[in-house]
Nucleic acid binder design. Structure first.
Lengths: 234, 234
DNA sequence: CCGACAATATTGTTCGACAATCCGAAGCTC
DNA sequence: GAGCTTCGGATTGTCGAACAATATTGTCGG
């Protein structure tokens, strides 16, 4: 009680709400391969496993649906989103401009505060950026890269519009399908983007980031049909 | 399959879910000035007025929050979102690229299907586009303009990312604060964008749309402080 | 006017219930 | 056996009530 009042300083006592914990649990479950793409999420299973009420689960699913992580079908429930070829292309088209803006803003603000230090730390952990442990938690490092970039942007609307979950989603669906050449190309592109941002080169950062997304779209278009969900007939 | 096709006639059996009705009711309430910017939405009031359960109201508020229409503050409830100067600028920065892409895609697809007819109809209703009833439901006509453009794009991700509600929100907060010169300029910009899209000029449509949003940002920056919410100190 | 405390209002979360709907299996007809 | 209908179980959609946790307001003495 007394402690609480003392804490009334600008610090936030923000304990994450229960639905948020469910959201995080599911997001993590996707990333960690505990849930597979397209899998159905049954409310009663979640209430049992996570020990929360059904209303809470439903709120979490609503949030995930709004983020585009799960697809909600009336009277059928929630499914881990699985992209058709067209949906994947549509997503990348939007991601191209959003990530482009993010890279631009990050480059623009790289020299204020301790942004430079933060971002340098996030990029150095990426494979090929001064280290050699290629496979050690690459997805996590990439997540950190994007997260740091978004934070530096300081644009709440951008963060709301382009949650990292999109990128995780995309990655989860196609992980393991890339050739070694693809992977090498991706790493090189990240290095170039990071270099441009670190240099504070606004224009170049945006251009390179957009090029990376476009290249990703090209690489994706070469994947077999089996990598994609069947087209949505709704 | 064959039956499916027959049944899949333009009419969809999709009875809108109860939370969706609540969402629409609130969105409409904002547009129609039944709710004012920054107003608090109390769950019990909504359950009473709309005759739905509290769980349903909560799901609706979650959705609206994800769309950025209301702001959810823990233990304090939902508020119709009110933008600070910075938030408004952040929003316009994102809207610039998203609307730009939308205009580009619309121009690209204007000649397939009956897109041209649809879009022409939507633009002719705009003031200064061949009619003269300037004040007759301008917000509605503008909404139709954007809605039609997004539909023509055929990019579900774009529709999900950039719900019209954003534009309504923005409009609601600043309505009545523009000068006659501002309004005239806006109308001119819409005409130019529409013309470019109708002409199928991909590059020009995107450029003009982005310019329109940038101009809007400029006009907005000249508004008095009283038009904005106080900065968020969270 | 100010701080501390009590009373109130509202949200966060849970539980249980029932109707509506979807899915798959059993049965029926040919 | 193929195709169709029917039926029942499983799951979601919505409701209502309840209680705990927290924020807001009102009250009091100084």
């Amino acid at each position: 009680m007394f402690m609480d009042k003392l804490r009334a300083s600008p610090k936030k006592p923000m304990a994450t709400s229960t639905p948020d914990m469910v959201v995080r649990s599911i997001n993590e479950g996707i990333l960690k391969r505990r849930y597979s793409i397209g899998q159905r999420l049954v409310e009663s299973d979640l209430t049992r496993d996570l020990k929360v009420s059904r209303g809470t689960v439903r709120e979490a699913l609503k949030t995930l649906s709004a983020e585009g992580v799960v697809k909600l079908t009336p009277h059928r429930g929630a499914f881990i989103r699985s992209l058709s070829r067209k949906e994947a292309n549509d997503l990348l088209l939007v991601l191209e401009v959003l990530c482009g803006v993010a890279a631009r803003l990050a480059a623009q603000r790289i020299n204020s505060g301790d942004h430079l230090k933060q971002f340098r730390a996030a990029t150095q952990a990426l494979p090929g950026m001064g280290n050699n442990a290629v496979s050690s938690g690459f997805p996590e490092q990439r997540a950190r890269f994007y997260q740091t970039m978004l934070t530096i942007c300081g644009n709440a609307e951008l963060e709301r519009t382009m949650p990292l979950s999109h990128i995780f989603m995309f990655r989860a669906q196609f992980q393991g399908l890339w050739s070694n050449k693809d992977i090498a190309a991706v790493l090189k592109e990240y290095q170039e983007v990071a270099a441009a941002i670190l240099a504070g080169n606004v224009k170049l950062a945006e251009t390179r980031m957009r090029r990376h997304i476009r290249k990703t779209a090209e690489r994706m278009s070469k994947l077999a049909d089996s990598a994609f969900a069947v087209a949505d007939l709704s």
